[in-house]
């Protein structure tokens, strides 16, 4: 029987996959994709908690909606930054973006 633990385990797995990608990728857009993956995993967690531990209450779904809003704003801004960086530098490899390093 599927219960909350299965959902949480799936969410943890997705989060770890996203974390691995976000830490290891070279391409800035690929890192953004992996961050989206992690945010999705968190949304599954929120909805599963509210479904199984507070049945009838939908606070978790409201939180998930806010997470989606913030994720959409984040991806739009981050892609704009990536395009601006590419225009100046002709590269989006994260290892080359070290202006602030000293």
């Amino acid at each position: 029987m599927i219960n909350i633990n299965h959902y949480l385990l799936l969410s943890a797995l997705l989060f770890s996959i996203g974390l691995f990608g976000a830490l290891s990728k070279k391409n800035a857009v690929a890192i953004l994709l992996c961050i989206e993956l992690m945010l999705n995993a968190i949304n599954i967690n929120l909805v599963a908690f509210t479904r199984y531990l507070q049945p009838g209450d939908i606070t978790g779904q409201v939180f998930a909606v806010f997470v989606i809003v913030v994720a959409a704003a984040e991806i739009a801004l981050a892609l704009a930054i990536v395009i601006a960086v590419y225009r100046r530098r002709e590269t989006i490899a994260i290892e080359n973006l070290d202006w602030l390093k000293w």
Partner: peptide, 29 residues
């Protein structure tokens, strides 16, 4: 492609997953 830190990133991701799985094992909802 993967950057230079792929192997440490893999270990970190495994560690996080193990931690989350352990927490799930400890606390059965």
């Amino acid at each position: 492609m993967f950057g230079r830190l792929a192997i440490p990133a893999l270990f970190t991701a495994f560690a996080v997953f193990a931690l989350l799985g352990w927490a799930l094992w400890q606390k059965s909802w």
